[in-house]
Design a protein around this nucleic acid. Structure first.
Lengths: 190, 190
DNA sequence: ATGGTCATGTAAATTGTTACATGATTAG
DNA sequence: CTAATCATGTAACAATTTACATGACCAT
């Protein structure tokens, strides 16, 4: 399970479930989202297996924190995961399925409306990622970073490129729809 | 649930669970995979809800087939899904998570090995999709197709573009790793 | 005192995967 | 006769989401 490995990878410094959730939400949810209700039991499980070590910590606010740190066994598991090569999972894009079935609306105009809406949403996401990039990188994108930041930045670039590709696809699709409409002009009023 | 809507969308002509599974495997699994063990109960559920109509059919081989056809209510559900605009789901890319954590290996060379391997795998997938494209489209990609084929072809193009973007990212990442290595030359033997 | 953030969890429901079970027909 | 394809399904498990539950501390 990838969530387990990700948590092990992140706990190279002591982090609580709450901390981890925040990390996910700012930097990781783009390629692997996680809810607190899944994080907490998973941390317990990893601790029970000896891959994480837990320690209580008093907190300024609220209840005491449980912070976790990866054990040597946990670190070994992460290294194995990484050296075993890229891992893949099934990908599910509902909007692609919608495009596949879009002819059910029986109107190229309706298809164009759909794709324009898709483009707007993707554009908004792209703006979000670009803001992260600008904030994280400063002016010189790949320079003056630790190896950790460097790899995280690479990761962000991957997200950016995929979004750009999807937006470019929207433009291609709209072009092709226009061409198709031009070739087969609208009936109704001559 | 998207699987339900996809099945409803596909059953505009009578199809059995078995037929549908094959459709998924050739054309749909790229953006929405499905197992038979999930398809069969889902079809039953949709029939129970009056969105699909089932009919038995004798089969040349094997047991009698159950073929399903979308009812007017089912078609309405599909149209609603499509006109409500693009639907999104969480996306999970284990390999992106691995890139995020890759600095745990403590070696830019190891990172390059990982990304080269990723590139090879993506390249192989791209070849697969290109073969589908060539087979489905003939020489003139968007022309001389029904609206149905047109939209399905658009869908394929989206898959292609995302794969190309990921491969381009691999190249960028390898370039940046080389630059970083050049700037901070290897220690060990001067 | 009201609402937000800190901080932990549990329970139920949904969704999807893997493994198992069955049996007919056809091609080699 | 053996394996592949056709065709249906069930059962057990795993992963994830949504909703619920609790309580402290801080700022307005």
């Amino acid at each position: 399970m990838s969530l387990e490995l990700i948590l092990l990878g992140l706990c190279r410094e002591p982090l609580s479930g709450y901390d981890l959730k925040q990390l996910f939400d700012v930097a990781i949810r783009h390629f692997w989202p996680a809810e607190l209700s899944q994080v907490y039991p998973t941390l317990r499980r990893l601790e029970a297996r000896g891959l994480l070590a837990a320690r209580r910590e008093a907190s300024a606010k609220g209840p005491p924190r449980r912070v976790y740190l990866t054990t040597p066994a946990g670190r070994a598991a992460v290294r194995r995961w990484l050296t075993d090569g890229p891992a893949f999972a099934d990908e599910r894009y509902p909007f692609a399925a919608q495009v596949f079935l879009l002819d059910a609306l029986g109107s190229l105009d309706a298809s164009a409306v759909f794709i324009r809406q898709l483009r707007r949403t993707l554009q908004a996401r792209l703006r979000g990622l670009l803001a992260v990039e600008a904030g994280a990188a400063g002016s010189s994108p790949f320079q003056a970073h630790t190896d950790r930041e460097f790899h995280q930045f690479l990761c962000l670039r991957m997200g950016l490129r995929v979004l750009e590709a999807r937006i470019a696809w929207c433009d291609e699709a709209l072009r092709e729809i226009r061409r198709r409409k031009a070739r087969r002009p609208k009936r109704g009023r001559p």
